[in-house]
Computed example of a mutant assay.
Amino acid sequence: MRRHALAATLALACVAALAAVPLPVSAHVNDVRGDPQVSADGTVLVETAYVADDAWLAVYRDDDGSRGEVIATRRLSGAGFRTDLAVSIDEAAWRDWPEGEARTVHVALHNDEGSSGFDPEEDEVLTFFGRAATDRFTLERGTGAYVGARAFSPQETDGPSVTARTVRLPSDGHLVARNVTDVGENETALEPVGATALGAGTHGNVTVELDEDYYERQDARARIAFTVYRDDGDGTFDADDEPVRAGGETLTTFVSLNRTDTGGGDGAGDGDEGAAVTTPSATDGSDDGSLVTTATAGSTASGDGTSGDGTATDASTTGTDGQPGFGTLAAALALVVGLVAHARRRRT
Protein backbone atom coordinates (compact mmCIF):
# COMPACT_ATOMS: atom_id res chain seq x y z
CA MET A 1 0.00 0.00 0.00
CA ARG A 2 2.81 2.39 0.80
CA ARG A 3 4.38 1.80 -2.61
CA HIS A 4 1.06 2.46 -4.34
CA ALA A 5 0.57 5.63 -2.32
CA LEU A 6 4.09 6.80 -3.19
CA ALA A 7 3.52 6.10 -6.88
CA ALA A 8 0.25 8.01 -6.82
CA THR A 9 1.87 10.95 -5.04
CA LEU A 10 4.74 11.07 -7.52
CA ALA A 11 2.32 10.87 -10.44
CA LEU A 12 0.33 13.79 -9.07
CA ALA A 13 3.53 15.77 -8.59
CA CYS A 14 4.50 14.99 -12.17
CA VAL A 15 1.16 16.22 -13.48
CA ALA A 16 1.60 19.39 -11.42
CA ALA A 17 5.04 19.88 -12.98
CA LEU A 18 3.54 19.50 -16.43
CA ALA A 19 0.92 22.08 -15.59
CA ALA A 20 3.70 24.50 -14.66
CA VAL A 21 5.41 24.14 -18.05
CA PRO A 22 4.38 27.01 -20.35
CA LEU A 23 2.27 25.39 -23.05
CA PRO A 24 0.75 28.15 -25.23
CA VAL A 25 -1.51 25.72 -27.06
CA SER A 26 -0.41 22.11 -26.79
CA ALA A 27 2.70 20.05 -26.27
CA HIS A 28 4.56 18.69 -29.25
CA VAL A 29 3.68 15.07 -28.52
CA ASN A 30 1.11 13.60 -30.93
CA ASP A 31 0.54 17.07 -32.35
CA VAL A 32 -0.13 18.25 -35.91
CA ARG A 33 -0.43 21.74 -37.42
CA GLY A 34 -1.40 22.97 -40.87
CA ASP A 35 -1.74 26.43 -42.37
CA PRO A 36 -3.76 27.86 -45.29
CA GLN A 37 -2.11 27.17 -48.64
CA VAL A 38 -2.60 26.88 -52.39
CA SER A 39 -1.63 23.66 -54.19
CA ALA A 40 -1.10 23.18 -57.92
CA ASP A 41 -0.89 19.38 -57.95
CA GLY A 42 -2.79 18.14 -54.90
CA THR A 43 0.24 18.03 -52.60
CA VAL A 44 -0.55 19.31 -49.12
CA LEU A 45 2.30 20.52 -46.91
CA VAL A 46 1.61 19.78 -43.25
CA GLU A 47 3.72 22.33 -41.42
CA THR A 48 4.53 20.28 -38.31
CA ALA A 49 3.74 16.79 -37.04
CA TYR A 50 5.06 15.22 -33.84
CA VAL A 51 4.50 11.56 -33.02
CA ALA A 52 5.87 9.39 -30.25
CA ASP A 53 5.76 6.18 -32.32
CA ASP A 54 4.79 4.85 -35.76
CA ALA A 55 1.66 6.62 -36.94
CA TRP A 56 -0.56 7.57 -39.86
CA LEU A 57 -1.18 11.07 -41.13
CA ALA A 58 -4.61 11.44 -42.75
CA VAL A 59 -6.24 14.33 -44.63
CA TYR A 60 -10.05 14.58 -44.61
CA ARG A 61 -12.71 16.51 -46.44
CA ASP A 62 -14.72 18.86 -44.26
CA ASP A 63 -18.23 17.68 -43.40
CA ASP A 64 -20.10 20.58 -41.81
CA GLY A 65 -17.18 21.35 -39.50
CA SER A 66 -16.25 17.73 -38.78
CA ARG A 67 -13.90 15.24 -40.45
CA GLY A 68 -15.54 13.63 -43.47
CA GLU A 69 -14.09 11.37 -46.16
CA VAL A 70 -10.39 10.48 -46.06
CA ILE A 71 -8.70 11.91 -49.18
CA ALA A 72 -5.00 11.37 -48.39
CA THR A 73 -2.83 9.29 -46.08
CA ARG A 74 0.83 8.84 -45.34
CA ARG A 75 2.55 6.51 -42.91
CA LEU A 76 5.09 7.99 -40.50
CA SER A 77 7.81 5.59 -39.40
CA GLY A 78 9.25 6.20 -35.98
CA ALA A 79 9.00 8.97 -33.43
CA GLY A 80 10.04 12.50 -34.24
CA PHE A 81 9.13 16.04 -35.17
CA ARG A 82 8.54 16.53 -38.90
CA THR A 83 8.25 19.78 -40.81
CA ASP A 84 6.72 20.63 -44.20
CA LEU A 85 5.51 17.06 -44.55
CA ALA A 86 4.13 16.40 -48.05
CA VAL A 87 0.91 14.39 -48.41
CA SER A 88 -0.70 13.78 -51.81
CA ILE A 89 -4.47 13.96 -52.18
CA ASP A 90 -6.03 10.99 -54.00
CA GLU A 91 -6.13 11.51 -57.76
CA ALA A 92 -9.90 11.08 -58.00
CA ALA A 93 -10.54 13.62 -55.24
CA TRP A 94 -8.14 16.16 -56.77
CA ARG A 95 -9.55 15.67 -60.27
CA ASP A 96 -12.96 16.75 -58.98
CA TRP A 97 -11.52 19.84 -57.24
CA PRO A 98 -12.16 22.89 -59.49
CA GLU A 99 -9.35 25.33 -60.26
CA GLY A 100 -9.54 28.36 -57.99
CA GLU A 101 -11.84 26.70 -55.45
CA ALA A 102 -10.92 26.81 -51.75
CA ARG A 103 -12.13 24.20 -49.29
CA THR A 104 -11.54 23.37 -45.65
CA VAL A 105 -9.57 20.18 -45.01
CA HIS A 106 -8.80 18.41 -41.76
CA VAL A 107 -5.53 16.68 -40.89
CA ALA A 108 -5.22 14.08 -38.13
CA LEU A 109 -2.62 11.76 -36.64
CA HIS A 110 -3.70 8.15 -36.12
CA ASN A 111 -2.03 5.27 -34.36
CA ASP A 112 -0.63 2.43 -36.46
CA GLU A 113 -1.91 -0.98 -35.40
CA GLY A 114 0.38 -2.72 -37.86
CA SER A 115 -2.19 -3.86 -40.42
CA SER A 116 -1.50 -3.81 -44.15
CA GLY A 117 -2.75 -0.25 -44.54
CA PHE A 118 -4.60 2.63 -42.95
CA ASP A 119 -7.94 1.73 -41.38
CA PRO A 120 -9.70 4.67 -39.67
CA GLU A 121 -11.80 2.26 -37.61
CA GLU A 122 -8.81 0.34 -36.32
CA ASP A 123 -6.20 3.14 -36.28
CA GLU A 124 -7.76 5.62 -33.89
CA VAL A 125 -6.94 9.32 -33.75
CA LEU A 126 -4.05 9.98 -31.39
CA THR A 127 -4.52 12.20 -28.37
CA PHE A 128 -2.32 13.93 -25.83
CA PHE A 129 -3.74 14.84 -22.42
CA GLY A 130 -7.25 14.52 -23.84
CA ARG A 131 -6.69 16.69 -26.92
CA ALA A 132 -7.10 15.01 -30.30
CA ALA A 133 -4.09 15.40 -32.60
CA THR A 134 -5.99 17.18 -35.36
CA ASP A 135 -6.07 20.52 -37.15
CA ARG A 136 -7.94 22.12 -40.05
CA PHE A 137 -7.04 24.74 -42.63
CA THR A 138 -8.03 26.18 -46.00
CA LEU A 139 -6.70 24.55 -49.17
CA GLU A 140 -7.18 26.13 -52.60
CA ARG A 141 -6.38 24.68 -56.02
CA GLY A 142 -4.18 27.04 -58.01
CA THR A 143 -0.61 28.20 -58.45
CA GLY A 144 1.31 27.02 -55.39
CA ALA A 145 1.60 29.30 -52.36
CA TYR A 146 2.76 28.42 -48.83
CA VAL A 147 4.83 29.65 -45.90
CA GLY A 148 6.26 27.36 -43.19
CA ALA A 149 8.28 28.41 -40.15
CA ARG A 150 6.97 26.67 -37.01
CA ALA A 151 9.71 24.68 -35.33
CA PHE A 152 10.54 22.22 -32.56
CA SER A 153 11.79 25.08 -30.40
CA PRO A 154 12.08 28.85 -30.85
CA GLN A 155 14.59 30.35 -33.24
CA GLU A 156 17.62 31.93 -31.60
CA THR A 157 18.78 35.33 -32.77
CA ASP A 158 21.52 37.68 -31.65
CA GLY A 159 20.37 40.48 -33.95
CA PRO A 160 17.36 41.89 -35.79
CA SER A 161 16.51 39.07 -38.20
CA VAL A 162 14.15 36.10 -38.45
CA THR A 163 14.10 33.14 -40.86
CA ALA A 164 11.28 31.24 -42.55
CA ARG A 165 11.99 27.62 -43.47
CA THR A 166 9.93 27.34 -46.68
CA VAL A 167 8.31 30.07 -48.81
CA ARG A 168 6.36 29.47 -52.02
CA LEU A 169 4.97 32.37 -54.05
CA PRO A 170 2.66 32.20 -57.08
CA SER A 171 4.30 35.33 -58.55
CA ASP A 172 7.00 37.82 -57.64
CA GLY A 173 6.35 39.20 -54.18
CA HIS A 174 7.56 39.55 -50.62
CA LEU A 175 7.96 37.58 -47.43
CA VAL A 176 6.80 39.90 -44.65
CA ALA A 177 7.45 39.60 -40.91
CA ARG A 178 4.64 41.06 -38.81
CA ASN A 179 4.15 42.03 -35.19
CA VAL A 180 2.00 39.68 -33.11
CA THR A 181 -0.44 40.60 -30.35
CA ASP A 182 -2.63 38.51 -28.05
CA VAL A 183 -0.10 35.66 -28.04
CA GLY A 184 -1.89 32.36 -27.40
CA GLU A 185 -5.08 30.88 -28.82
CA ASN A 186 -6.16 34.15 -30.46
CA GLU A 187 -2.83 35.64 -31.48
CA THR A 188 -3.12 38.15 -34.29
CA ALA A 189 -0.67 39.31 -36.96
CA LEU A 190 -0.65 43.10 -37.22
CA GLU A 191 1.75 45.66 -38.71
CA PRO A 192 4.76 44.63 -40.83
CA VAL A 193 8.12 44.85 -39.09
CA GLY A 194 10.35 43.64 -41.91
CA ALA A 195 10.18 42.36 -45.50
CA THR A 196 12.32 40.79 -48.20
CA ALA A 197 11.59 40.54 -51.94
CA LEU A 198 11.35 37.08 -53.57
CA GLY A 199 10.73 35.80 -57.06
CA ALA A 200 7.95 33.39 -57.97
CA GLY A 201 8.57 29.80 -56.90
CA THR A 202 9.81 27.95 -53.82
CA HIS A 203 12.54 29.27 -51.54
CA GLY A 204 14.23 27.72 -48.49
CA ASN A 205 15.59 29.38 -45.33
CA VAL A 206 14.61 32.94 -46.19
CA THR A 207 15.88 35.56 -43.73
CA VAL A 208 14.01 38.82 -43.12
CA GLU A 209 15.87 41.76 -41.61
CA LEU A 210 13.81 43.41 -38.88
CA ASP A 211 13.32 47.03 -37.99
CA GLU A 212 15.99 47.73 -35.38
CA ASP A 213 13.84 50.01 -33.22
CA TYR A 214 11.13 47.37 -33.07
CA TYR A 215 13.66 44.64 -32.30
CA GLU A 216 15.21 46.58 -29.42
CA ARG A 217 11.78 46.99 -27.81
CA GLN A 218 11.28 43.23 -27.62
CA ASP A 219 11.90 41.13 -24.51
CA ALA A 220 14.09 38.02 -24.51
CA ARG A 221 11.14 36.14 -25.98
CA ALA A 222 9.13 37.45 -28.93
CA ARG A 223 6.53 36.25 -31.40
CA ILE A 224 6.47 36.88 -35.16
CA ALA A 225 4.06 36.14 -38.00
CA PHE A 226 5.15 35.46 -41.59
CA THR A 227 2.85 36.42 -44.47
CA VAL A 228 3.49 36.24 -48.22
CA TYR A 229 2.47 39.18 -50.43
CA ARG A 230 2.15 39.69 -54.18
CA ASP A 231 4.19 42.57 -55.56
CA ASP A 232 2.24 45.30 -57.38
CA GLY A 233 4.97 45.66 -59.99
CA ASP A 234 7.32 48.21 -58.43
CA GLY A 235 9.55 45.66 -56.66
CA THR A 236 9.11 47.38 -53.28
CA PHE A 237 6.95 46.25 -50.41
CA ASP A 238 4.36 48.91 -49.65
CA ALA A 239 0.69 49.43 -48.85
CA ASP A 240 -0.30 48.66 -52.47
CA ASP A 241 0.89 45.05 -52.21
CA GLU A 242 -1.80 42.47 -51.44
CA PRO A 243 -1.35 39.38 -49.26
CA VAL A 244 -1.69 35.98 -50.92
CA ARG A 245 -4.85 34.18 -49.81
CA ALA A 246 -6.38 30.72 -49.94
CA GLY A 247 -10.06 31.47 -50.31
CA GLY A 248 -10.44 34.51 -48.11
CA GLU A 249 -7.74 33.47 -45.63
CA THR A 250 -4.33 35.12 -45.65
CA LEU A 251 -1.38 32.72 -45.91
CA THR A 252 0.30 33.25 -42.55
CA THR A 253 2.23 31.22 -40.01
CA PHE A 254 3.59 32.07 -36.57
CA VAL A 255 7.01 31.53 -35.01
CA SER A 256 8.63 32.14 -31.62
CA LEU A 257 12.10 33.56 -31.09
CA ASN A 258 14.68 33.84 -28.35
CA ARG A 259 16.96 36.85 -28.20
CA THR A 260 20.43 35.74 -27.10
CA ASP A 261 21.77 39.30 -27.00
CA THR A 262 19.68 40.60 -24.09
CA GLY A 263 21.95 39.43 -21.27
CA GLY A 264 18.99 38.39 -19.15
CA GLY A 265 15.24 38.39 -19.62
CA ASP A 266 13.26 35.18 -19.14
CA GLY A 267 16.09 32.71 -19.57
CA ALA A 268 16.41 32.52 -23.34
CA GLY A 269 19.31 30.29 -24.31
CA ASP A 270 19.79 29.01 -20.77
CA GLY A 271 19.85 25.38 -21.90
CA ASP A 272 16.61 24.22 -20.25
CA GLU A 273 14.98 23.03 -23.49
CA GLY A 274 15.90 19.99 -25.56
CA ALA A 275 17.89 20.76 -28.67
CA ALA A 276 16.53 19.99 -32.10
CA VAL A 277 18.51 17.60 -34.27
CA THR A 278 16.99 17.65 -37.75
CA THR A 279 17.54 14.99 -40.39
CA PRO A 280 15.86 14.08 -43.71
CA SER A 281 12.88 11.78 -43.16
CA ALA A 282 14.48 8.82 -44.90
CA THR A 283 12.67 6.46 -42.54
CA ASP A 284 9.46 7.34 -44.35
CA GLY A 285 10.81 6.13 -47.66
CA SER A 286 10.24 9.53 -49.22
CA ASP A 287 12.31 12.15 -50.98
CA ASP A 288 9.96 15.12 -50.59
CA GLY A 289 12.34 17.12 -48.43
CA SER A 290 10.36 16.84 -45.20
CA LEU A 291 12.41 16.80 -42.02
CA VAL A 292 12.39 14.74 -38.86
CA THR A 293 13.58 16.33 -35.62
CA THR A 294 14.35 14.55 -32.38
CA ALA A 295 15.32 15.99 -29.02
CA THR A 296 18.74 15.59 -27.46
CA ALA A 297 19.62 16.13 -23.85
CA GLY A 298 21.77 18.84 -22.33
CA SER A 299 21.69 21.45 -25.07
CA THR A 300 20.28 24.90 -25.57
CA ALA A 301 16.98 25.88 -27.11
CA SER A 302 16.86 27.59 -30.50
CA GLY A 303 14.84 30.68 -31.42
CA ASP A 304 14.01 33.44 -33.91
CA GLY A 305 13.63 37.22 -34.11
CA THR A 306 11.28 39.97 -35.37
CA SER A 307 10.75 43.62 -36.44
CA GLY A 308 9.36 45.84 -39.23
CA ASP A 309 8.65 48.95 -41.24
CA GLY A 310 5.04 49.76 -40.35
CA THR A 311 3.61 49.90 -43.87
CA ALA A 312 0.78 47.69 -45.16
CA THR A 313 -1.39 45.93 -42.58
CA ASP A 314 -3.80 43.01 -42.48
CA ALA A 315 -5.18 42.59 -38.98
CA SER A 316 -7.51 39.74 -39.90
CA THR A 317 -4.98 36.92 -39.59
CA THR A 318 -5.14 34.76 -36.48
CA GLY A 319 -3.50 31.48 -35.67
CA THR A 320 -2.39 29.11 -32.94
CA ASP A 321 0.93 27.47 -32.23
CA GLY A 322 2.56 26.03 -29.11
CA GLN A 323 6.30 25.85 -28.52
CA PRO A 324 6.75 24.33 -25.05
CA GLY A 325 9.95 23.50 -23.21
CA PHE A 326 10.25 19.97 -24.49
CA GLY A 327 13.01 18.84 -22.18
CA THR A 328 10.97 19.43 -19.02
CA LEU A 329 7.90 17.92 -20.64
CA ALA A 330 9.73 14.81 -21.84
CA ALA A 331 11.26 14.21 -18.43
CA ALA A 332 7.87 14.50 -16.74
CA LEU A 333 6.27 12.18 -19.27
CA ALA A 334 9.03 9.64 -18.80
CA LEU A 335 8.38 9.68 -15.07
CA VAL A 336 4.67 9.09 -15.58
CA VAL A 337 5.36 6.18 -17.94
CA GLY A 338 7.81 4.69 -15.47
CA LEU A 339 5.36 4.96 -12.60
CA VAL A 340 2.59 3.33 -14.58
CA ALA A 341 4.88 0.48 -15.62
CA HIS A 342 6.00 0.01 -12.02
CA ALA A 343 2.43 -0.15 -10.79
CA ARG A 344 1.53 -2.73 -13.43
CA ARG A 345 4.49 -4.91 -12.48
CA ARG A 346 3.44 -4.76 -8.84
CA ARG A 347 -0.11 -5.81 -9.69
CA THR A 348 1.07 -8.78 -11.75
Score class of each variant (00 low, 15 high):
Arg2Met: 14
Arg3Leu: 13
Arg3Phe: 13
His4Met: 11
Ala8Pro: 00
Ala13Lys: 12
Ala13Ser: 13
Val15Thr: 11
Ala20Thr: 14
Pro22Tyr: 13
Pro24Gln: 13
Val25Ile: 15
His28Asp: 07
Gln37His: 07
Ser39Gln: 03
Val51Gly: 01
Asp54Phe: 00
Asp54Thr: 01
Trp56Tyr: 08
Asp63Cys: 07
Asp64Ile: 10
Asp64Cys: 07
Ile71Trp: 01
Ile71Asp: 01
Leu76Gln: 05
Leu76Tyr: 05
Leu76Asn: 06
Ala86Gly: 02
Val87Trp: 02
Ala92Glu: 15
Trp97Ala: 08
Glu99Met: 12
Arg103Val: 14
His106Pro: 06
His106Arg: 00
Val107Asn: 00
Asn111His: 09
Glu113Arg: 11
Gly114Lys: 06
Asp119Glu: 07
Asp119Phe: 05
Pro120Trp: 05
Glu121Lys: 09
Glu122Met: 08
Asp123Phe: 06
Asp123His: 01
Glu124Ile: 03
Val125Cys: 04
Leu126Met: 03
Arg131His: 10
Ala133Asn: 06
Glu140Pro: 00
Tyr146Gly: 05
Tyr146Ala: 07
Val147Met: 01
Ala149Thr: 05
Ala151Trp: 05
Ser153Gly: 12
Val167Met: 06
Ala177Pro: 01
Arg178Asp: 03
Thr181Lys: 04
Gly184Glu: 08
Glu185Asp: 12
Glu185Ala: 12
Thr188Gly: 07
Leu190Cys: 10
Glu191Ser: 14
Pro192Phe: 06
Pro192Arg: 10
Val193Gln: 07
Val193Phe: 04
Ala200Lys: 06
Ala200Gln: 03
Val206Pro: 01
Val208Arg: 03
Glu212Val: 14
Gln218Phe: 06
Ala220Thr: 15
Ala220Ile: 11
Ala222Gly: 13
Arg223Ile: 06
Arg223Trp: 10
Phe226Leu: 09
Val228Asp: 03
Asp231Ala: 02
Arg245Pro: 00
Glu249Arg: 09
Thr250Cys: 02
Phe254Cys: 03
Leu257Ile: 11
Arg259Lys: 14
Gly265Arg: 03
Gly267Asn: 02
Ala268Ser: 12
Asp284Phe: 03
Gly285Val: 05
Ser290Arg: 04
Thr294Asn: 10
Thr294Arg: 11
Thr294Gly: 10
Thr296Glu: 11
Ser299Asn: 14
Ala301Val: 13
Ala301Trp: 09
Thr306Val: 12
Gly310Met: 10
Gly310Gln: 09
Asp314Tyr: 08
Asp314Pro: 04
Thr318Ser: 10
Gly319Ser: 00
Gly322Tyr: 09
Pro324Trp: 10
Pro324Ile: 11
Phe326Arg: 12
Gly327Ala: 15
Gly327Val: 12
Val337Tyr: 15
Gly338Leu: 12
Ala341Asp: 08
